[in-house]
């Protein structure tokens, strides 16, 4: 058997799966988004832009996603950076690996159970009860944008810490020594040496978190109580409750297109700033 045939055989199962479960389904979504809703719940093939013209009907979902996703990304960045810095620069090398693993592991555990934990903590008998005990009454936390934001930060913090850690860890520590030997105070070393050199990690972290947040469903569903909903929640509603496949497909296409546009603009911006993006595997 020639190497060529061997490679084809090795790629055959992967190719078939990608074709049947990625290319064909995504094409169906694209085709349906131009179709018309069938009375029975399916889609009548057509070529109409009607579904896209109707997108503003779900404006609130898009607005919530496009405000809470960037805010959540930024908040996660602000909390993650000092931790990543500590792990890369300050932490005892003996403990570094285990500390890092402790950050990454929660990300791979069930986001459902982890968000559920916050229903528990933010619900009437959790934090609000604690606040009442110290004299602050009537605080409502669950089913607010704040609760969703906490869930987002909690869910995606590990994904932000890891790439920043990688770029800070890679940084040549002699540069920091040189900076302080030349008389720069620590804050100046940080602003002029450390921070610029960690931009690739920040860029990767923000992109990963932002992309995942755009398609989020569970966190708003669990902690937003139907009041704070994302495009993901609209999609579940359209496909599983009202069974409007044509319109739902248009919403899904719009989501992916917005995602692609934002990511492209973001990468262009970074390239213009001359920053390299670090591709790291969060595993």
């Amino acid at each position: 058997m020639s190497i060529r045939t061997r490679n084809w055989l090795l790629l055959a199962p992967a190719g078939t799966l990608f074709l049947a479960l990625l290319i064909v389904p995504l094409t169906v979504v694209l085709v349906f988004s131009f179709g018309e809703r069938a009375p029975a719940g399916g889609v009548v093939p057509a070529f109409t832009l009607e579904q896209y013209a109707n997108l503003p009907a779900r404006w609130t979902a898009f607005k919530n996603t496009l405000t809470l996703a960037p805010i959540g990304t930024l908040a996660a960045l602000l909390i993650a950076y000092p931790l990543a810095y500590f792990l890369a620069v300050r932490a005892d090398p003996k403990w570094k690996t285990i500390l890092l693993v402790l950050v990454i592991v929660p990300f791979w555990t069930s986001i459902l159970i982890r968000s559920y934990a916050w229903i528990f903590l933010l619900g009437g008998r959790g934090l609000p009860a604690l606040l009442e005990w110290i004299g602050i009454d009537g605080v409502r936390l669950i089913n607010t944008p704040f609760a969703v934001l906490v869930g987002i930060i909690y869910g995606y913090l590990p994904l932000m810490v890891f790439p920043i850690y990688v770029s800070l860890d890679r940084l040549d520590k002699r540069l920091l020594e040189a900076s302080s030997d030349l008389g720069a105070p620590p804050w100046r070393t940080f602003l002029q040496v450390t921070l610029p050199l960690s931009v690739p990690g920040i860029a990767t972290g923000c992109m990963l978190v932002f992309i995942l947040l755009m398609g989020e469903f569970l966190i708003p569903a669990m902690l937003g109580g139907g009041k704070v909903f994302f495009v993901g929640n609209a999609l579940v509603d359209l496909f599983l409750q009202s069974r409007n496949w044509a319109y739902g497909s248009a919403v899904a296409v719009a989501l992916v297109v917005i995602m692609l546009i934002t990511v492209t603009i973001y990468m262009r911006l970074l390239n213009r700033l001359g920053a390299r993006r670090d591709d790291v595997a969060i595993m």
């Binding site: 790629l11 992967a14 190719g15 990608f18 479960l21 990625l22 290319i23 064909v24 389904p25 995504l26 094409t27 169906v28 979504v29 349906f32 992309i211 995942l212 755009m214 398609g215 469903f217 993901g232 999609l235 579940v236 496909f239 496949w245 739902g248 497909s249 899904a252 989501l255 992916v256 995602m259």
Partner: peptide, 30 residues
């Protein structure tokens, strides 16, 4: 071939899970 696979891997990982779910549902049902 390599380029096509690279693209497919990238798409599979980048597309939100919810869109994968929806696409698989309506694609397979159709």
């Amino acid at each position: 071939v390599r380029k096509a696979f690279d693209l497919l891997i990238y798409v599979a990982v980048m597309i939100p899970g919810i869109v994968i779910g929806i696409a698989t549902l309506i694609g397979l049902v159709t």
